[in-house]
């Protein structure tokens, strides 16, 4: 009994953990109007329906676009700051690191609310751009922390060697530091993508006419359960898993 108990617990935990995602994906193949038992199907009609809906595919493109641009900005700024702090001794560097990490400690709702107040007060129109600005605020601390943690003495020696051989700082960064830190930079980028692309509350507060996919899904939720929502949800899950697997591969490669 004592021997099987842990395995029973593990199985029960997995049932609990996979129950919602499993139900979501299974009933996305439902041949009928309601995504509840009994299951009829499988049918791909809801996927066809979703992929034929230009509002949804438009929102999907918006989401990926915002995530890509926001992550690129976050990783670039995060890398530069990490390089500056790791390679130059600056007064108050602990304070600067604290400031750069600070947004991680505040709930997204509050980050979004603050930006909403300032942007609307200063007459800034809400759009995908403002949502992107918010997403950089929440992903920059992650990107900075990951890249800063990966900056070690090992690269410093290679950088010094390159400098002694006459390379200027820009060349050192582009040809030595960035390639040596590629796994960390890649990990920071994909982690930022996973955080940004399905983020809801900031995008909800800071967009108006063109919206991202989670905001579009939110407005569909009002009409209740539908296999259509299951199909979009399954697609969103699939894309997130793809980002996570890429991330995992990068971390594994770094470990080798």
């Amino acid at each position: 009994m004592m021997r099987v108990l842990p395995w029973l617990y593990l199985i029960a935990a997995f049932v609990f953990i996979y129950l919602p995602v499993g139900t979501l994906v299974l009933f996305s193949f439902q041949d009928g109007r309601l995504p509840v038992p009994p299951f009829n199907g499988p049918s791909l009609r809801w996927y066809a329906d979703v992929l034929g809906d230009t509002r949804l595919t438009g929102a999907l493109v918006n989401s990926v676009g915002v995530a890509f641009v926001a992550s690129t900005i976050a990783v670039t700024l995060g890398f530069l700051a990490a390089y500056g702090l790791a390679r130059h001794s600056l007064p108050g560097s602990a304070l600067i690191r604290g400031l750069l990490i600070a947004p991680l400690t505040v709930s997204y709702l509050i980050v979004g609310l603050g930006l909403l107040i300032v942007l609307t007060r200063s007459g800034f129109g809400l759009s995908l751009v403002t949502a992107g600005i918010g997403h950089v605020v929440i992903t920059l601390p992650l990107a900075f922390a990951i890249i800063y943690a990966a900056m070690g003495a090992q690269q410093q020696n290679a950088e010094r060697a390159a400098r002694d051989l006459g390379a200027n700082e820009a060349r050192v960064i582009l040809l030595v530091t960035v390639p040596m830190l590629a796994p960390a930079i890649g990990a920071a980028f994909f982690l930022s993508m996973t955080f940004s692309w399905d983020e809801f509350i900031i995008a909800f507060l800071l967009t108006r006419f063109d919206v991202t996919l989670p905001v579009e899904i939110w407005s569909l939720l009002r009409s209740g359960l539908s296999p259509r929502l299951n199909a979009i949800g399954s697609l969103v899950f699939l894309i997130s898993v793809a980002f996570v697997l890429l991330l995992e591969l990068l971390i594994l490669r770094k470990r080798k």
């Binding site: 953990i17 996979y18 919602p20 995602v21 979501l24 996973t194 399905d198 809801f200 989670p214 899904i217 939110w218 939720l221 979009i232 949800g233 969103v236 899950f237 997130s240 898993v241 980002f243 996570v244």
Partner: peptide, 8 residues
């Protein structure tokens, strides 16, 4: 499943 969008 941690990586599923929280709305979904």
């Amino acid at each position: 499943p941690f990586w599923t969008s929280y709305v979904v």
